[in-house]
Amino acid sequence: MTATHDLLKILDTLCPMYVLLGDSGHIRQVGPTLQKLRPDQPMQGQRFLELFELNRPRCVEGMSCLLKRAGAKLHLSFRDDPRTALKGVLVPLPGNQGAIVNLSFGISVLDAVRDYALTSADFSATDLTIELLYLVEAKSAAMEASRMLNLRLQGAMIAAEEQAFTDTLTGLKNRRAMDHILGRLLDRASRFSLMHIDLDFFKSVNDTYGHAAGDFVLQHVAHVMVEETRSSDTVARVGGDEFVLIFDGLQDADILDRIARRIIARLEEPIRYNGEICRISASVGTTLFEPGSGADAARLLHEADVALYAAKNAGRAQHFFFDASLDAEDMDQKEAG
């Protein structure tokens, strides 16, 4: 008996969550840390399997069944709340005198330390639990710092992208953004229309009233174009006084013509700037994209351009749709020129 007593003293230090079982499966002694988990409920004298449930491997028959699991990893939990999960291993004592089960928290240790207010002194000196807790805290702090950095970088990236795709004077999309959107629509083989708008008399506003007036007029133009289109349409400023509008899913010539004429009419309304009255107009050329036609972005922009110059040639404030005959004339003119 003294020998057992000394042995238990040793176990208190080496593995403070041990359970000494008698041959009937009753608890004869437990380590101090294990008892700390149920301070008001002495474990001594209770049946092991009434206090703990063996989840894996399943065991219902009591001590004989437990002994068969000697050396294997046991997954247990308390039968009452908090039903902390435990890992364990059982070693039979010689001469059918029962067994020793050593328990540990496994991954449930994070909750257990909090639930039971455990301290360093509750773990054996060689137990890695303290290091594990240290790592969890250190890694969480480092992860939080990284997460903050990622958020800031993401914000910076979004801002940079928006800047890269925005015309800073008008807030419209820029040429790069337009190329990007056009490429996507072509990839998707969507039906869409592309409208090229060129301002008339804009140069004279710049020359007469100065660049500040010119900038003001461009902002006004942008405002009109955004108002006269749907939010799903693309309005881009692609040059000094050139704009491209893309209407995804819209190829109705009547509607497109109405939009173009309304834009022209509104742009022809006098624009007041610093007591001066600025007058401009616009010419518009439109082309429709037929999926399967083999047209690429360059081809479509060329077609809209051809229609636009036909409109300009027909006198200002006109809207023309592209058709192949215009392109032939265009070629003829170029060849003649």
């Binding site: 994070l110 330390v113 909090r114 639930d115 207010a117 455990l118 301290t119 360093s120 303290i130 807790l133 969890v136 805290e137 969480s140």
Partner: peptide, 15 residues
Amino acid sequence: TAFAEGRSFDLGARA
């Protein structure tokens, strides 16, 4: 070593 009370260190507090 134990001159004053010191501050507590609760293992499970997780700052």
